[in-house]
Simulated scan of single mutants.
Amino acid sequence: MRLSVPNIPPAVLAASLARPPTLTPRAEAVDRVARFVAPGNVAVLTGAGVSVDSGVKAYRGKDGRYMNPDYKPIFYQQLIEDSPRGHAFRQRYWLRAYIGYAPVNKTEPNPTHYALAALQHAGVVPQLITQNVDGLHHKAIRRVWDPERMAAGMLELHGSIFKVHCKHGHEYGRDVFQEWLSEANPRWRAYLEDMDRQGIQPKTNPDGDVVLENVSYDDYVVPNCPGCLNEGRINNVIKPDFVFFGESISQAVKERSYKTVEDTDRLFVLGTTLATYSAFRLLKHAVDLKKPVLLLNVGPTRADGMPGVEKVEIPTSEILRDVVGAVVGSRARYDPILRDMLLSGVIRPPSYDSPDTEAPVDARSPVPPTTAG
C-alpha cells in the first residue's frame, strides 16, 4: 500500500499559484470575523498556522505547498511494526523526537491562542477543536479552566505530544518517557545539554521530529515498556499519543468532533489548509448541515471555492485581539481575566532561513554521540 503525506488537491494549488492571494484589508477583516462570531455558540477548528507565532513551524507555506518536500516522515505502520525493521524505525523516530521534544515543550501561547481562550472564557466559543498536538490552547486557558473543564471544551483531533503509550495500552507522560530515553542514552543526553548551552535550536517539525545529519541510529536505545515487563513480556513498541501519517483517528474522537459541529450554530476555521481529511470533513459536515462557515487563512486551502464557505485572508495574529474586543465590548476592560488574556502572548515566529540560530543536528559537532559508518 502506498502512503503519502496529505496535501491540497493539485487543481486547487495550481489555481492559487496562478492568482497570488490578496489580503483582506485589516478593518474589513476585523468586522467580518467579529460579526460572524458575535452571535455565540461557535465551534472553532484550528491548525498549525495558529502556532507559527509561538515558533512552531507549519508543514505548508503561504502558497500551500509542502515546505520540506524531501522530508520523509515515519508512518504509523512502520513505527508499530514488531520486527527488526520496525525496531530500526523506532530508533530513528525516538532519537529525532528526543532531540525535538524540548523546543516544542518550551513553546508558549501567542496572541492568537490567548484571543481564542478569551472567546472561550467569555462563553462565545463553547467548543474548540485543534489539529495541533502542541498543547498551546490548553496553556493559554489553564489559568481559568481546570483539566476537567478543558477536557470538556477542547478536543485534540490528532492527539497530544505530551503522552505516550505502548501497543498494549500502558500510558506514560512524555516527560517521564523523555527521562527514560536520557537514562538509556547518556551520550545523547550530554549532546542535548551541549546544544542547550550553545543556544542551538534544531529544525523541528510540528510533531517534534527534527532534522538529523551524519547520524547512525543503530545504537540508540528505545526503552522497554515497564508495564509490559511487569506482566512478563518485553515490548518497546511505544508511540506518542498523536495520530501519525497513515493512522486513523479513533471512532470516539471522530464522533465527538461531528457532535461538536452538530451542537453549535456555526464553524470558525483558522490557520489551516485543511489538507488532512479528518479536518476537512468537519467543514464539509457543517456545510451539509447548512451552518455558516468562516475560514480565516492566508493562502490556498482545500475548501477554496466551496459553496457555503466564506473566506478571509489575513494573518490571525493581526486581527484576533481586535475581534475579541469588538465582540465582548466593555468586558475587555473590566473583566481582569479577559484584559490579561488580551495582553498576553509571545511573538517568536520561526526563522526558515537563519543558519546561525537554527540548524540540522549534526553528529560531527562538539560532542558527537555517534557518527554514520
Rank of each mutant, 00 (worst) to 15 (best):
R187F: 12
D196T: 12
D209K: 07
D196E: 15
E193Q: 12
D194H: 10
P206F: 14
V215Q: 05
A190H: 08
P186E: 13
Y191V: 03
D194W: 06
P206M: 13
G208P: 13
Y191H: 11
G199Y: 05
R197W: 12
Y191R: 09
E213Y: 06
W188K: 02
A190Y: 06
V215F: 01
A190W: 04
G199R: 06
I200M: 13
R189M: 01
G199L: 02
N205S: 07
A190S: 11
L192S: 14
Q201C: 05
R189L: 06
V211Y: 14
L192F: 05
Y217C: 02
P202H: 14
Q198C: 05
P202T: 11
T204I: 05
V215G: 02
G199M: 03
A190R: 11
R189C: 00
K203W: 04
Y217H: 08
D218R: 04
A190F: 03
L192M: 10
R197K: 15
D209F: 07
P186M: 10
Q198Y: 02
W188F: 09
Y191N: 10
R187Y: 12
D196A: 15
E193C: 07
Y217T: 02
D209R: 07
D196H: 13
I200K: 04
V210W: 00
R197S: 12
R197Y: 13
M195I: 07
Y217Q: 01
P186I: 06
Q198R: 15
I200C: 06
Q201G: 04
Y191M: 10
L192N: 04
M195P: 07
P202Q: 13
R189D: 04
D218A: 05
T204F: 08
Q201Y: 05
S216N: 04
Y191W: 04
R189H: 04
D194C: 05
P186T: 10
E193D: 11
N205H: 11
V211W: 14
R189W: 00
S216T: 12
N214T: 02
S216Q: 03
P202F: 11
E193G: 06
M195F: 07
P202I: 07
T204C: 12
R197N: 12
R189V: 00
P206I: 14
P206W: 12
D209Q: 10
Q201H: 08
V210P: 00
L212R: 00
N205D: 10
V211H: 15
W188C: 02
S216A: 07
R187C: 12
Q198G: 08
E193I: 05
R187H: 15
D218C: 00
N205E: 14
Q201I: 03
P206E: 14
L212C: 06
Q201T: 13
V210N: 00
K203D: 02
D196S: 13
G199K: 03
L192A: 15
R187W: 14
G208E: 05
L212Q: 01
D218G: 01
D207N: 10
E213D: 13
Y191C: 12
Y191A: 14
S216H: 03
L192Q: 14
P206G: 15
D207V: 03
D194L: 05
W188N: 04
D218N: 03
E213N: 11
R187A: 15
Y217A: 01
G199Q: 06
